[in-house]
Design a protein around this nucleic acid. Structure first.
Lengths: 372, 372
DNA sequence: GTTTAGCACTCACGGCGCGTGAGTGCTAAA
DNA sequence: TTTAGCACTCACGCGCCGTGAGTGCTAAAC
């Protein structure tokens, strides 16, 4: 049953596996030998197909729910498919144009980028979309605003170079009025503008009086903001997914899926997959059935990619769907949206970058999907 | 079948309706005359109960799925229950304390208020929570920041009095470098600080050179920000809901629900319910089965409230659940969280308010649920 | 007039059996 | 190595039916 990965399939076995995956993705049911010869005239008889199927089952690529039923790809079968058999189909031109156009229209309204990306991605991949906002890896101070609220409580708004905004409440050790706050903010604005956390720290060591409660909070916010992933995870597309028979019928699968999407810690952990070093911007990562590591994902597959400017400002996006997912479509959708978002992010950050830093985003239909 | 609302039920009919609703909410099934006498010793025989049930059915408060089945409350039955029969049970003390504590711990991290409120509300009401961030009705300019990105594109960050932040991209008619942008921003900061849209417009008429592309955009953002509801709708708690039998089994009901939560335009329309004049802050509104006006909500009920400071800074929050919802719990949860959020909002906005403007938030177990 | 015991009637539900046919594995011949 | 032929398996759908929960009605009791 379980043989080493090294096992190489014959061309005919590969073709069969490919067709079985295709059929199964379309019908959501088991695939019979007869159905295959009917649909694809293979030049061989059902009996031959059956023999090969039996072999593929021995190798662990197929599974038979019960005797006298057709075959279904296993997780491993899907993985083989994604790694080696999937034809690399780019998103249809008109779909690409539509998406590009939607983002073009929303280009000025930054707050719409994430919601738009989530709906677009969900529709294009026909699965649930998940994504995080882009984050800069080195936060640079731009402007601080302090707003008196009541008593010793102050609302602190910190604008980073590139436009990231962080808000936090701050309780001072002693009350200050709005004028005093204004002065304190201006003092920091003058000394810190254009500096990163390290430089600000150095300057605080030079002039100890700078090191106020407020300055310390600013520093801690800047350091937090350098974390690799944004906290807020957007998702959309459950309605796309609940159409799928495996979720409508087996309600435990759908419950599992909803929990995945709503349980932020789990989502975070999954998204963090894209942070492991092997993955550069543009390459797409595919997790099938949790890959043995994620129990909650046993019935799902996840397609993930990073977007943005490598080592500078990046976010993660991806889709979650049933294992029986249209991987080619999902992967190309993820890649395409990652590129579009990457362009948008690039447009915001460009002035901060020397031109050689620019990472030209990966073109559609370039690198094959990268596997974990 | 359909008799005017004026119909007044006898005390015994009311008691029966109340018990039937109670049973049905607990069991999710039909309620039989025998079950009632067993559970609640009513001092009468099942036959009497049956007679009353038949009468209540004639009046449209109960429904019988088929002959020889028990009764189930109709939408109208639930409505009568919510309006007149529901005992006003406040959230248990320890639950109140837990929630208050969670908000206390997150009081400084404004960005966590909405996510926290959504999870807390979903858990307390055992239904899906929906909410919008608070919005000020009169936006007052505080600070403008302009960040050069590339070419003629500029990132504009506008901070309002009270701490609302709006971001938008702006494409200038002619390029400006960061220094020029800085100057333009400072000019506006000096002239506009502390003013609302009307005052800024007046000033622009006095000094026409003030009326730049940037100033116009700032104005339009401020005017947009005065809309009654925030665009972003948070929701959480599908996983709570999918436990309920009517959603697990009848998958169309669950699909409908997911669509409601994901379809932002619909959600918006529902939330806008709270904007109609009859509802003040603190009062809770209950929509049962769409009330004939919302087809998509035919299988759901919604409990809504506004929170914040009336006529000044308010948001909406509520829960969505099956019609067979625990209304008392849902209503008290909505009211309690609305109050807690109201306090937080108040703490931010206090300095802008004269003390007589303060709306003391409604205490738990005060006003009965208000009906639409 | 109201309540209730008694009784006939209804009908959803679950279990059972079974025919059907889709699909397989095996064997032996091409 | 392929394939025709065939026996075998077994999920699925269907109809049947007993069961019992629950009702409506009627007539007697309060």
């Amino acid at each position: 049953m379980m043989t080493p990965n090294a096992e190489k399939l014959s061309p005919r076995q590969e073709m069969l596996l490919r067709l079985i995956v295709k059929e199964h993705v379309e019908t959501a049911g088991t695939v019979a030998s007869g159905t295959l010869v009917d649909h694809y005239d293979l030049g061989v008889s059902p009996a031959t197909v059956r023999n090969e199927m039996a072999h593929l089952e021995d190798l662990g690529y197929l599974h038979q729910p019960h005797t006298s039923a057709g075959r279904v790809p296993t997780d491993r079968g899907f993985r083989y498919f994604v790694e080696r058999l999937m034809e690399d189909h780019a998103l249809p031109q008109n779909e690409q144009r539509t998406i590009a156009h939607q983002f073009y229209q929303a280009r000025d309204r930054i707050e719409e980028w994430m919601p738009l990306a989530s709906t677009v991605l969900a529709r294009a991949a026909q699965a649930a979309a998940i994504l995080t906002a882009p984050r800069t890896s080195g936060a640079i101070f731009k402007h601080l605003e302090l707003i008196a609220t009541h008593g010793r409580a102050v609302l602190l708004i910190l604008v980073m170079e590139g436009g990231t905004v962080e808000q936090q409440m701050l309780v001072l050790s002693e009350p200050m009025n709005q004028t005093a706050l204004r002065e304190a903010a201006d003092r920091l604005n003058q000394t810190c503008a254009g500096q990163d956390a390290e430089q600000i720290k150095a300057r605080m060591r030079e002039f100890p009086p700078l090191e106020t409660d407020i300055a310390r909070l600013v520093l801690s916010i800047m350091e937090d903001a350098q974390g690799q992933l944004s906290d807020e995870v957007y998702y959309y597309g459950l309605s796309e997914l609940l159409q799928a028979p495996e979720f409508a019928i087996a309600e435990d699968a759908s419950t599992a899926l909803v929990r995945i999407l709503e349980e932020r810690s789990l989502l975070h952990a999954v998204l963090a997959e894209t942070l492991t070093p092997s993955v550069g911007i543009g390459s797409v990562r595919v997790l099938i059935g949790g890959e043995g590591r994620w129990d909650e994902l046993r019935t799902c597959s996840v397609v993930l990619a990073r977007y943005g400017i490598a080592n500078y400002a990046t976010g993660t996006l991806g889709v979650v769907g049933p294992i029986r997912m249209h991987y080619a479509r999902a992967i190309s959708a993820v890649r395409f949206v990652a590129n579009v978002l990457g362009e948008l992010v690039y447009d915001i950050y460009q002035p901060d970058l020397r031109s050689d830093l620019r990472v030209t985003s990966v073109k559609q239909s370039e690198s094959p999907a990268e596997e974990v």
